[in-house]
Structure formats: structure tokens, C-alpha cells
Design a protein around this nucleic acid. Sequence first.
DNA 1: TGACAAGCTGAGTCTCCACTCACTATTCTC
DNA 2: GAGAATAGTGAGTGGAGACTCAGCTTGTCA
Lengths: 189, 189
Amino acid sequence: MSPLSPSDDDGPPLRADAQRNRARILDAAEAVFAELGAGASTEEVARRAGVAIGTVFRHFPTKNDLLAAIMKRLLARLVAEAGELGGGDGLFTFFSRLVAQAAGKRSVVDLLARAGVEIRLPDTVGHLEQAVGELLRQAQEAGTVATAVRLPEVMALLISVCQGALHGGWDAGLQERTLGVIFGGLRGH
Amino acid sequence: MSPLSPSDDDGPPLRADAQRNRARILDAAEAVFAELGAGASTEEVARRAGVAIGTVFRHFPTKNDLLAAIMKRLLARLVAEAGELGGGDGLFTFFSRLVAQAAGKRSVVDLLARAGVEIRLPDTVGHLEQAVGELLRQAQEAGTVATAVRLPEVMALLISVCQGALHGGWDAGLQERTLGVIFGGLRGH
DNA sequence: TGACAAGCTGAGTCTCCACTCACTATTCTC
DNA sequence: GAGAATAGTGAGTGGAGACTCAGCTTGTCA
């Protein structure tokens, strides 16, 4: 893994054009990887962003760095989303939203799956676990989730169901029924 | 997709050495893809099988054909395994065994996920659905699974949980607790 | 056992893709 | 607005991996 990518560290601030391009590249990469999976070429990202390929590599020295940067944004968004939920149904809502996203976008899941393997993002992943943990706590307090349920299996289910939704191309009905089974299991009865 | 691979069609029977090599290639491929995922090189498969790479391509004109052949064997085994189970716990046992396999081997899941995407194996996948459907029917008859549960969500959960186990590297305890939640959901209370 | 078909071999081709770098263009600073 | 620093460009490099094929080997069958 390269050292910190520009705009992450505290080095000299980026030039205006560089900031613009960096944002364009991130957006393009997110879209491209969402459509084609993490196997999509860096060239395609550059084309979509409207920059030369060299520019992509200037900002993200390796393809992995680019993936990591996207992953970080995605996770940060999820954490934010989780942070806004709560109460008895927060955890369930979070599950549903994640799955709905996963069914359409390869990136979320393709990347989620890589966390901890090729990409190291312990902090951000930790934050997500923390946020989900809080949702779990609130749900258990409200009595909508059995107290025997622990965080690791909730995370495991979250990842599983995203993977499944992605690969299986679930429609809305199947999503609902599948989650229904899991929610039943979480409730305990 | 290429036409039928040798030994699937009814053309002239394979020569003895060809049969031997075909079997070796399939075994090697299964092992290699299990370890390294479907991205492993055909060269590695040839090396492990102790044949030249040309031989692999003689038997399986494209890498996809090779993957399809392995997939077919894997699914056939799963169907056979499902066929031997039954009663109130058959479905649960099947789930547990699949997940236990998935946690160790990339192939099962990596390939399961591709069914219907790159690889076309409608018959065999259909057979698996049929076999799982029978397990579901028996479990519902025995009262261990709620009657509201339908086959599609069972398949969806099966695939999800395999994906999750694969990517997350679950240990035995996590497997058990995660499946516990799902089993609870299937039971209905 | 000889002859022919079937199968095996592996160096070589082709394509794709991550990544580089010498050069040019833009922005910033004073 | 000029000079310096920063950023952009895109043809080029290197490597990996799927797939081919001309020549050699082996099994089969009369």
C-alpha cells in the first residue's frame, strides 16, 4: 500500500485543478467499478473521468489505492447512514437499505468483500462495526432483537446478504422475503 | 460456450490415456480453483495435473468450459448429498455442511455465484433447487420450518451464507451462531 | 506388428492491463 | 506577469495469461 494518498495527509494543499480531477476520478471510479466490478480497467476510469491515465496514477499510485479510496468513501457513507438511524427498527432499516443498494451495485459488495484482504481499512471498518453495534444495542433495548444475538453474527449476516443480493440479482419481493427470514431469526420469535 | 466437451457427448469413446488425463485435469482444477479462486491460471492447473497446457485446452476449449465442468461435478455432489438427507433436520444439516465447505474452499462458492452468469448449467442448478425443495418440504411437514417459507428465499439464504462464509473466513463458532439466527428465522419461532 | 488416428507437447502469439516517464500545460506566488 | 512548483499527458514498457499449432508420441485395431 502506498503511503497516504493526496488529500489524506497534511502535506501542501492540492492545486485547484488537481482537486477537481481527484474528485472526478473518484466519482468515475465508483461508477465504473459499480457497473463492471473491481476488475474494470483503470483506463476506463480515466476515460470516464475525462483525464489521461497518468493522472489517475498520479493521484492513486496503484489500482489498489484507488479501490481503497472508494471503499473508504462508501464505508464512511454507510457509517453516516447508520448513525442517523436508531430505535427498535434502525437495524432492520439499515439491513434493508444495504441490500437494496447491493442488488444494483457491484462496488459496494465487491469492495466490502475485499476489506481486510487486499485492502486495509481497519479504522473505517471498525467504525462501521461500531455503528452497527450501536444499532444492535438500541434494537435489543427496544426488545426487537433477542439479547442472545451478538455483533459478529450480525456483521456476518450483513455481509452475506449483500453478497447474495449482488450475485443472485434479487428482485424486491425476494429481498423482502429473504430479509424477513433473517429478521425473524434476529427477533428470536 | 463451446459445443459439448468430450465425454459429455456421445462421439467416439476417449482413448485410455485421454480419459486418465481428463480426470487428472478435473481433479487438479478443482484443487487449484479451490485454493486460488477462479482467477487462477490454466497453466497452474496443467502443472498440478502433470500435463502440458495444450492438453488442458484439448479437453476444455476455453477456461470457462473447464470451470463449467467442475461446477457441474460440484453441483452433482451437492445434489447427491441433499438426496441422502431428509426429515425435520435435513435442511438444517445441509445448510451447515455447505457453509462448512464454503469456509474452506473458494471454488464451491466462487463458482456457485457464477451459475447463470458466465456459466450456463440450468439442468444441474435446477436439480439442486429440486433437491433443496424436497428438504424444505420434509422440514415443513415435520414442523421444523414455518410453512410460510418458500424455496426462493431458502436458496437465496443458502447462497448468501456461503458467500459470507467464504469472504469472511468464519470460524466454527461464528458459523454456528450465524446459522443459528437463520435457523431461528426459518423455524418461525 | 504395422499403420493410422487420436492425443500430447510447449514454445510462441495475441490481447489486455497496470504502471512509467519525458515532455508539456496549468496554477500559484511574489 | 514571470518564474517556479505542481499537475497533466499519452505513447511506451513489462508481464501475465488465454489460447494455437506444427511436430512428435502413444494407443488401438486389424
